[in-house]
């Protein structure tokens, strides 16, 4: 099955994950509706993850969802839960945004394993997005770029003013 995923989103009522994709006929968009059944608004993080995995591995949908990341499906289920709990779309977006950004001030050494795993997944996501793999056609092993540190540079903002500290 040739399938190029274009967009994947969620419909709240009745709940369904919807995939817009291009099938064998080039230039013709198709839509696949995958209903979400028995979804509880009390689903915790683990359950959301499981739902995402189940959907991705569902024998009927599997080949269509190959290009859709588990993380995105998880996020869509999170939206559905938020909707069922009465959250506004803006609130949900903000929450997702907050969870997917790095807090520069947070000390990861002080988090428990579960929270740490969450932060690491955020970092992994960025890494994977920017990663140049060995098999990529434009891969270069030794990439050298000079970034001169001259006096005129603006401070990173993390140095304190006092002379004793950096």
């Amino acid at each position: 099955m040739m399938c190029t995923a274009k967009k994947c989103g969620i419909r709240f009522k009745p709940p369904a994950i919807i995939l817009i994709y291009e099938g064998e006929v080039k230039g013709k968009s198709r839509q696949r509706i995958m209903p979400v059944r028995n979804f509880s608004k009390f689903s915790g993080c683990t359950l959301l993850q499981q739902r995402a995995e189940q959907l991705k591995n569902n024998p009927r949908h599997k080949s269509y969802l190959e290009q859709v990341s588990l993380r995105q499906l998880e996020k869509l289920f999170t939206f559905l839960r938020g909707y069922l709990q009465g959250q506004s779309l803006a609130e949900m977006m903000e929450q997702v945004q907050r969870e997917r950004t790095i807090d520069p001030e947070e000390d990861l050494n002080k988090l428990d394993d579960k929270e740490l795993a969450k932060r690491k997944s955020v970092m992994d996501e960025l890494f994977e997005k920017n990663q140049k793999k060995k098999d990529d056609p434009d891969f270069v092993y030794d990439v050298e770029v000079e970034f001169p540190q001259d006096e005129q540079l603006q401070s990173c903002g993390w140095d304190t003013e006092s002379a004793d500290e950096f």
């Binding site: 890494f127 140049k132 950096f166």
Partner: peptide, 22 residues
């Protein structure tokens, strides 16, 4: 394009790198 005083203060070489893109 930013300066990082820690390296400067101790006269240590500073490298800007990316493990992702190499």
């Amino acid at each position: 394009q930013r300066s990082f005083n820690f390296a400067r203060k101790f006269s240590l070489p500073l490298y800007f790198v990316s493990a992702a893109d190499g």
